[in-house]
């Protein structure tokens, strides 16, 4: 089965069922309109079909305004699609749930809670006993290199540290799926690189299914098993590229790897060709 067939909206019913069975997430013909002014509707997403298998790291790459974040929010159940549906573990998504943990570019930490309070928040919410919640939170904070910051408030942390807390907070309630919305987009280049490496290390431990929205080609290629390229106005899947690079991935050796370079250059060319923008 080729990639083109997978993305086509007209997959035969039995083929779609076969797909569903192997899929952790199945995005099926999802479209999203936004009402702008009277009678005017903006088509943000058009007929997106995308299956994601269990344990797969999939990046959604596209220019700003292509609806890639909206697609992620629809999978999260935060936004309703105008048509189509999303299945997670064969069940249609009807709203947010702890099986899908979001990580946002804006961190979205609870500013009135300490670092520890943020990480245990979801556990308290799930009814995990206090002592167990605190123990798990401490272990996660150690994993994201934030031991010793338990009693700090978010405002006292740098952007990179905030995002580490946010990742720990989401991992705490053990979602099967991570929905990452340009999580490193607001960070400086050095912090960003460090967090990418850390994320891959964490992911390698239990290989959660990850949907990762980004507009950085290098980031998408470095992290992903597959890169879904989107075009804008309306947001459609332009292409899906399998990233056939060995894991665990080491940044330095990848940068020297001819295949990595080819992926990055080819994807960048395709994006340029699509937008006609060489600036």
């Amino acid at each position: 089965m080729s990639q083109a067939e997978l993305t086509s909206p007209r997959i035969a019913a039995e083929e779609r069922n076969a797909l569903r069975q192997s899929s952790m997430i199945s995005i099926e013909r999802v479209s999203k309109y936004f009402d702008t002014r009277r009678d005017k509707r903006h088509l943000a997403l058009s007929e997106i079909t995308l299956p994601v298998t269990r344990g797969e790291f999939v990046s959604i790459l596209g220019p700003s305004g292509c609806g890639k974040s909206t697609l992620l929010y629809i999978v999260g159940g935060f936004v309703q699609p105008s048509s189509g549906q999303v299945l997670v573990n064969d069940r249609p998504v009807e709203g947010p749930g702890p099986d899908r943990g979001p990580v946002f570019q804006e961190f979205a930490l609870f500013p009135w809670k300490t670092v520890l309070g943020n990480v245990t928040y979801g556990l308290d919410q799930r009814g995990v006993p206090k002592a167990e919640a605190v123990a798990r939170a401490r272990a996660l904070l150690a994993m994201v290199s934030l031991s010793g910051y338990e009693n700090f408030y978010p405002k006292e942390l740098s952007g990179g540290m905030k995002q580490r807390v946010a990742i720990a907070r989401t991992l705490a309630y053990k979602p099967n799926i991570l929905l990452m919305d340009e999580p490193f987009g607001a960070l400086d280049a050095q912090t960003r690189t460090r967090l990418q490496n850390d994320l891959l290390k964490i992911w390698d431990e239990d290989r959660k299914t990850v949907l990762f929205v980004t507009h950085s080609v290098e980031e998408a290629v470095f992290l992903s098993d597959r890169v879904v390229m989107m075009s804008r106005s309306p947001g459609r899947i332009q292409d899906i590229i399998d990233i056939d690079l060995p894991r665990p991935r080491d940044r330095a050796s990848l940068l020297l790897d001819r295949r990595y370079q080819d992926y990055v250059v080819n994807i960048e060319r395709m994006m340029d060709a699509q937008t006609g923008d060489h600036s």
């Binding site: 159940g77 935060f78 943990g101 979801g122």
Partner: peptide, 13 residues
């Protein structure tokens, strides 16, 4: 911030 509410909703609140 909407995303604070989303984060809580994802925790099942």
């Amino acid at each position: 911030e909407e995303k604070l509410l989303w984060s809580a909703a994802a925790m099942g609140m």
